[in-house]
């Protein structure tokens, strides 16, 4: 059982970071931004370019990769989503546009790097660390620590900074925030750049664990969306939703079979939406 607990923590750490990132973006622009899946993939491919191809030292390669991915994400907002806002498009149009952007990003990566699986790790595969009867690799430990740090950063930003207050206000009532003089544009820019950095870094950690293919982003974003819908706007609720989803998936893999993971995840979402009609209404809106 200790291994199930550890496996739950590992996958929950990815789900929570993505769920929170989606939630931050949702507060700012009011739609599920599927193009975040492309940024999740762009991070590791930038890393592949800077670290493996240009042989830049690891630390600088990480910084360049995260910054470049973050800039790409902001450019997407500035060049595309912003125009949609001007034309008063519905969240559904923006959702479809974001899906289109994800497809474009994925295909551009495929064209540049190819579809074959790539690896950025150049370390020997070693047996994991034994922790309380469960095995854990160093990179998985990093993933768990990273998600904890990310949660703390989000908590501090949202509750202790002016930017956090602005974002919460925009999330609660957009017209009111504008009328109160909240700098909406600045808040959105900061949100996109910050989320871009954190999600691309998560993608790099993920790639160190299971390597990279251009299509790997969508699955994890879907899990993030499930976590976000179940968790709603509350940070703690998203964390709990991430842990519950991860636990259900890992218990399912243990007792039923690993090919049931996605079925279990979406069954949980359906169950939640059926039990909470208001949540589905909220999600649609």
């Amino acid at each position: 059982m200790s291994q199930i607990f550890v496996n739950t923590l590992i996958s929950a750490s990815f789900f929570i970071v993505i769920g929170l990132a989606l939630s931050l973006i949702y507060r700012a622009v009011k739609f599920f931004d599927m193009s975040l899946a492309g940024i999740f993939v762009a991070g590791p491919y930038c890393m592949l370019f800077f670290y493996n191809s240009l042989c830049i030292p690891l630390f600088f390669a990480l910084i360049f990769s995260c910054l470049l991915s973050s800039i790409i994400y902001y450019v997407i907002y500035f060049a595309i989503y912003k125009r949609f806002e001007h034309n008063a498009h519905s969240p559904l149009s923006l959702l479809l546009a974001s899906f289109g952007i994800y497809i474009i990003l994925q295909n551009v990566i495929s064209i540049i790097f190819g579809d074959r699986i790539m690896t950025i790790r150049n370390i020997h595969i070693q047996e994991g660390i034994l922790l309380g009867g469960a095995m854990l690799t160093p990179i998985q430990l990093i993933a768990i620590l990273y998600s904890i740090i990310f949660v703390f950063i989000v908590l501090i930003i949202m509750h202790k900074t002016k930017y956090g207050l602005c974002l919460r206000t925009i999330g609660e009532n957009f017209p009111l925030a504008q009328s109160l003089g909240v700098s909406v544009k600045k808040t959105i820019v900061i949100t996109y750049l910050t989320v871009g950095i954190f999600v691309s870094l998560l993608g790099i950690i993920y790639a160190y664990d299971v390597d990279i293919v251009p299509t790997m982003g969508m699955n994890i974003i879907m899990m993030g969306i499930i976590v976000m819908i179940i968790g709603g706007n509350g940070i703690m609720k998203i964390i709990i939703a991430g842990i519950i989803l991860s636990l259900a998936i890992n218990l399912g893999a243990w007792y039923i079979g690993s090919e049931w993971k996605e079925v279990i995840a979406f069954a949980i979402l359906l169950f939640y939406l059926l039990m909470q009609p208001r949540a589905s209404h909220k999600a649609v809106n």
């Binding site: 291994q3 996958s11 299509t215 699955n219 890992n250 243990w254 079979g257 690993s258 090919e259």
Partner: peptide, 17 residues
């Protein structure tokens, strides 16, 4: 005896079994 899906990335729980 168990199956896995094409495209699956995490096999750890099953491998533990």
């Amino acid at each position: 005896s168990e199956g896995f899906s094409l495209g699956q990335k995490d096999f750890r729980t099953t491998l533990q079994k």
